[in-house]
């Protein structure tokens, strides 16, 4: 039973692991911290998985757990396992639509996001993931109006950082 649950969970996580990578990339700034946060998010997801009822999409649920882990639960630790080398977190855009200028802009965007607060990072991440404001508000525990207002403010802030 547990093995079956494990298998099901690993498969779902594998399909959606880019979500964790994005959260880790937003909340950490080096490969070791990225790996450590990735592990903690995975552990938290697994611990919470038996309670996942499927009311929302797995990816939506993942965002909540991953953001909660990054913002509130995560304590930096030295614990580590050897994973495939994740030393360079420069994600190039997919080759089919690779555009050097756009790629550079994404790297600049990450740099700008690192200057935001923990809460602002979460809001802008959900916005960039194209989540509807209703979902952003529910994930963060805000009203939809306030989520919209805040996202617009953060967008303004980011634009100023990107175009000084």
């Amino acid at each position: 039973m547990t093995q079956q649950l494990e298998k099901q969970f690993v498969s779902l996580l594998d399909e959606n692991q880019n979500i964790i990578h994005k959260v880790c990339r937003v909340y950490t700034n080096n490969a070791d911290a990225h790996k450590d946060l990735f592990q903690e998010v995975t552990i938290q997801l697994w611990k919470a998985y038996p309670k996942f009822r499927g009311d929302s999409k797995f990816s939506t649920w993942m965002y909540r757990v991953a953001l909660n882990t990054a913002i509130t639960i995560y304590r930096k630790s030295k614990r580590q396992i050897k994973t495939s080398d994740i030393s360079d977190f420069h994600y190039r855009l997919e080759s089919s639509d690779y555009d050097a200028t756009m790629d550079e802009q994404i790297q600049l965007l990450y740099k700008a996001i690192h200057q935001l607060s923990d809460v602002e990072k979460a809001l802008i991440l959900l916005y960039l993931e194209d989540k509807p404001y209703k979902e952003i508000a529910e994930t963060m525990g805000l009203t939809e109006v306030n989520a919209r207002v805040k996202v617009n403010r953060i967008k303004g802030k980011l634009k100023t950082i990107l175009n000084p």
Partner: peptide, 14 residues
């Protein structure tokens, strides 16, 4: 472009 970020190089194995 944000959505098309390629993480396959850094993918954690099952």
């Amino acid at each position: 472009a944000w959505k098309n970020q390629d993480y396959s190089k850094h993918k954690v194995s099952t």
